[in-house]
C-alpha cells in the first residue's frame, strides 16, 4: 500500500478507461453466503448465453472459488451491454465447519469445506480490490441487512467509486422485506427480485445495462 501501488492503480484505471468501449466490464456478484449469488449468476448466464456459471446449493459456501462467465451480452432497449460476470464466494467474517455438519456432512469434509470457503473469501476480497469494474450486491431479503459484513463491503465499494446495484433477493419467500434493505442502504437503489423464480428480472437487466453499460 505504498505510493507505487496507488500510482499503479491510478494508471491501470486510466488505461482501463481508455479501452472501456472495447472490453467487457467485469461485474462482481457479491454478498454474504446463501444470499443467492450463484442462482442469480446462473439466471443471467442462462438467460443470455444458455450456460450456467456454477452449481447452486442451499448449503452455505457452495461457491468457494470465484467463477467467471465472460462475454455475457445483455440487450436492453436496443442497446447491447457486454459484461463478464464474476460469481464470488460468500463473504463472511467467520467460517466454522460445524455449520456444515447440520447438512449431513462428515467432519473431514466439513473441515475441508470450511478451509476452502475461507480461501474463497480471501479470493473474493482480492477480486474486489483488483479485478472488478462494478458490483451487484445480493442480499437475502428475509434476513437482517444490518451486518458488519454488509456495512464493510458496501463501504469498500463506495470508497472505490465502483458502480453498485443492490438486489433484494428471495422475494418469493414469505419473510421477505425489501424495504428493510432499502432503509439500510438508502444511498443506493434497491431492486427486488427472486433469482430462483425469475421474478422481476426484466428490471434487473435494465438496471444492469444502465449501471454498467
Amino acid at each position: 500500500m505504498g505510493l507505487l501501488t496507488n500510482l499503479k492503480d491510478s494508471i491501470s484505471r486510466v488505461t482501463d478507461g481508455l479501452f472501456a468501449a472495447d472490453e467487457p466490464k467485469r461485474i462482481g456478484i457479491y454478498g454474504p453466503p446463501n444470499a443467492g449469488k450463484t442462482t442469480l449468476a446462473n439466471r443471467i448466464a442462462r438467460d443470455w448465453t444458455g450456460d450456467a456459471v456454477g452449481p447452486e446449493s442451499h448449503i452455505p459456501h457452495e461457491t468457494r472459488r470465484a467463477r467467471r462467465k465472460e462475454n455475457v451480452e445483455i440487450e436492453r432497449n436496443g442497446r447491447k451491454v457486454t459484461i463478464d460476470i464474476v460469481d464470488t464466494p460468500g463473504v463472511t467474517t467467520k467460517v466454522d465447519y460445524k455449520e456444515f455438519l447440520d447438512h449431513d456432512m462428515e467432519k473431514d469434509d466439513a473441515i475441508r469445506r470450511s478451509r476452502e470457503a475461507t480461501e474463497g473469501v480471501a479470493e473474493a476480497m482480492h477480486w474486489l480490490r483488483e479485478d472488478v469494474d462494478g458490483v451487484i450486491y445480493v442480499l437475502d431479503s428475509t434476513t437482517d441487512p444490518f451486518t458488519q459484513v454488509n456495512t464493510m463491503l458496501i463501504g469498500i465499494i463506495e470508497s472505490q467509486d465502483l458502480p453498485a446495484l443492490i438486489l433484494a433477493n428471495k422475494t418469493d419467500l414469505p419473510g421477505s422485506d425489501v424495504q428493510q434493505i432499502a432503509n439500510a442502504f438508502p444511498q443506493h437503489e434497491t431492486i427486488p427480485l427472486s433469482a430462483l423464480e425469475g421474478e422481476n428480472m426484466d428490471e434487473v437487466y435494465t438496471k444492469i445495462a444502465e449501471y454498467f453499460g
Partner: peptide
C-alpha cells in the same frame, strides 16, 4: 487477515484481506 481459531474454524479480517496486495490462494 485470517485467524485460524482451530482446524476448520476461521476468523477473517475483511479489511486486512482487502488491503493486502497479496492474497491467500490456499490454506
Amino acid at each position: 487477515s485470517i485467524r485460524i481459531v482451530s482446524p476448520g474454524k476461521y476468523e477473517l479480517n475483511l479489511m486486512e484481506l482487502y488491503d493486502r496486495q497479496e492474497y491467500i490462494i490456499s490454506l
